[in-house]
């Protein structure tokens, strides 16, 4: 897009003039973003068009649930445990200042179940499953495997994308619930490091303060997190076009954009729940 200024070249100087329009912040930043969002929306619309139309790829769906859900469980469980433990240890001094140590279980539980559990688990999930999906689909694209599916009369979108998005949408909430449970156990151990609270008493205190309105919106939003992580990763992988370099780029962009979208969705979810309750 570089042109040489004719006036400058007369003086035997070559100046590179960037056209005004490409210095405009709108064309530089906003238009590419809007374009990407529009393409993603189209991809999403295609998903909803394909998801209800037979044939259904049940076997592949189950395989993906296993790969995406079950295989992420150990990672999610470990981070959940540490999260509960650390949060408890860190919160104790502040609460102790107010002589409110007996509130520790309830406070930790509310913050884990409402906010930290879903968001951290979704971020870990974006790192593990999202990058995997992005890289796998991109390398399938690059090595013509997606084309090969297409020419054998099988709809690759349905087989590859729809199954992964459904699996991710339903596996992430399960992972979050599992992670919350492990987190609470971590919190129980954290409480008992400097004190003596029985298992029953701990959970009695936790559920005293926890209500349905803490649990329900927190679980609902994780469906959207799971959907978004897979949608973005599939979009990035499926539309990769730049050889092996593109595989890395797709994996990278999948994680970055999925993580960003988790925070944006979370912000929207929090606004909505505070409106409703």
């Amino acid at each position: 897009m570089a042109t040489t200024n004719s006036a400058a070249s007369e003086k035997k100087e070559v100046a590179v003039i960037v056209p005004v329009e490409s210095r405009n912040p709108y064309t530089l930043f906003i238009r590419p973003i809007l374009h990407e969002v529009a393409m993603l929306a189209r991809f999403c619309a295609l998903f909803f068009k394909e998801v209800f139309a037979p044939p259904y790829e049940l076997k592949e769906l189950i395989r993906q649930c296993f790969l995406i859900g079950y295989k992420s469980f150990p990672l999610v469980a470990i981070t959940g445990f540490i999260m509960g433990l650390v949060l408890t240890i860190q919160s104790r001094p502040t609460l102790a200042q107010f002589g409110a140590e007996s509130w520790l279980p309830a406070m930790v539980a509310v913050s884990i179940i409402r906010e930290i559990g879903p968001v951290i688990t979704a971020l870990i999930f974006a790192g593990k499953a999202g990058s995997g999906i992005g890289a796998e689909l991109a390398s399938m694209k690059v090595t013509e495997q997606i084309d090969a599916m297409e020419v054998s009369g099988i709809n690759p979108f349905k087989y590859l994308v729809v199954t992964r998005i459904i699996a991710s949408t339903f596996m992430l909430p399960l992972l979050v619930i599992a992670s919350d449970a492990v987190s609470l156990y971590g919190a129980y151990i954290g409480v008992n490091l400097k004190g003596d609270v029985s298992f029953q008493l701990f959970f009695l205190k936790v559920f005293e303060k926890l209500s349905f309105s803490d649990l329900f919106p927190a679980v609902i939003k994780t469906f959207f997190f799971g959907f978004m992580v897979a949608l973005i990763s599939c979009y990035k992988g499926y539309n990769s076009n730049k050889g092996t370099v593109g595989v890395g780029e797709s994996a990278n962009a999948s994680v970055v954009l999925a993580s960003l979208s988790i925070f944006i969705l979370d912000m929207i979810a929090v606004q909505l729940t505070s409106l409703i309750t």
Binding site: E136, S139, M140, T143, E144, Q145, D147, A148, M149, E150, V151, S152, G153, I154, N155
Partner: peptide
């Protein structure tokens, strides 16, 4: 349309230069 194209493709065999086997 997409459906007719799929039906047509089932009558055609295509060997890719890169073989394009499904890795998984």
């Amino acid at each position: 349309n997409a459906h007719e194209l799929n039906a047509l493709r089932r009558k055609i065999g295509f060997l890719f230069q890169s073989a394009a086997l499904y890795d998984s």
